[in-house]
Simulated scan of single mutants.
Amino acid sequence: MEHSIKYLDVKTSTVEGSNGVSYAYRRLGPQGGRPLVLLQHFRGNLDNWDPDLVDALAATRDVIAFDNVGVGATTGSTPTTIAQMADDAIVFVEALGLDTIDLLGFSIGSFVTQEMVLTRPSLVAKLILASTAPQGAPGMHGWAPDIIGAIGEPATDAEGMLHAFFTDSPTSRAAGERFLGRIFTRTEGRDEQTTWQTRNAQYDAVLKWGTPNFGMLQRLAAIERPVFIANGNDDRLILSWFSHLTASLIPDAFVKLYPDSAHGFLYQHAQAFAADVHGFLDA
Score class of each variant (00 low, 15 high):
Asp276Gln: 13
Gly215Pro: 10
Ala24Trp: 03
Leu53Gly: 02
Phe280Ser: 12
Leu180Trp: 11
Gln268Asp: 09
Thr195Trp: 14
Ala59Ser: 11
Tyr23Asn: 03
Leu104Ile: 08
Leu162Thr: 06
Trp196Ser: 08
Met1Gly: 09
Gly97Val: 12
Gly20Asp: 06
Ala133Leu: 03
Phe42Cys: 05
Ala253Thr: 07
Pro51Asp: 06
Asp99Arg: 13
Ala125Cys: 11
Ser122His: 15
Asp235Trp: 09
Pro170Gln: 15
Arg190Gln: 13
Ile148Glu: 07
Ala89Gln: 03
Gly33Leu: 01
Gly210Leu: 02
Glu192Ala: 14
Val37Glu: 01
Met140His: 05
Val10Lys: 03
Leu245Met: 15
Thr113Trp: 00
Ser261Arg: 10
Ile5Trp: 03
His244Met: 11
Asn231Ile: 02
Asn45Thr: 13
Gly142His: 06
Ala83Lys: 14
Glu177Asp: 09
Ala56Cys: 05
Val112Cys: 07
Asp204Cys: 09
Gln197Arg: 08
Thr194Cys: 15
Gln135Asp: 07
Thr80Asp: 15
Gln202Phe: 10
Val37Met: 01
Pro259Glu: 12
Lys256Asn: 10
Phe179Gln: 09
Ala247Phe: 10
Leu207Phe: 03
Arg27Asp: 04
Ser13Asn: 05
Glu2Asn: 05
Ile108Ser: 04
Ala137Ile: 00
Leu53Thr: 00
Asp204Pro: 04
Trp143Asn: 02
Ala275Gln: 13
Thr211Cys: 13
Ser4Asn: 10
Leu257Cys: 01
Ser13Met: 02
His278Gly: 11
Thr187Phe: 07
Thr12Gly: 04
Gly264Leu: 11
Val93Gln: 10
Ala56Asp: 08
Met85Trp: 04
Thr194His: 14
Val93Met: 14
Ile128Val: 15
Asp55Glu: 02
Glu192Asp: 12
Gln84Thr: 14
Thr211Gly: 09
Gln84Arg: 15
Leu36Tyr: 02
Ser243Asp: 04
Gly232Pro: 10
Asp87Glu: 15
Leu39Ala: 13
Ser4Trp: 10
Tyr25Asp: 04
Phe242Gly: 05
Ala59Gln: 07
Ile151Arg: 01
Phe280Glu: 12
Val91Met: 03
Gly72Asn: 12
Gln193Ile: 11
Phe106Val: 12
Pro138Thr: 04
Thr12Arg: 07
Arg190Tyr: 10
Leu36Lys: 06
Ser110Gly: 14
Asp260Ala: 05
Glu153Tyr: 05
Asn231Asp: 14
Val277Asp: 08
Leu239Ile: 12
His163Pro: 00
Pro121Cys: 06
Gly149Val: 08
Ala155His: 02
Arg186Glu: 02
Arg120Cys: 05
Ala83Trp: 11
Leu57Gln: 07
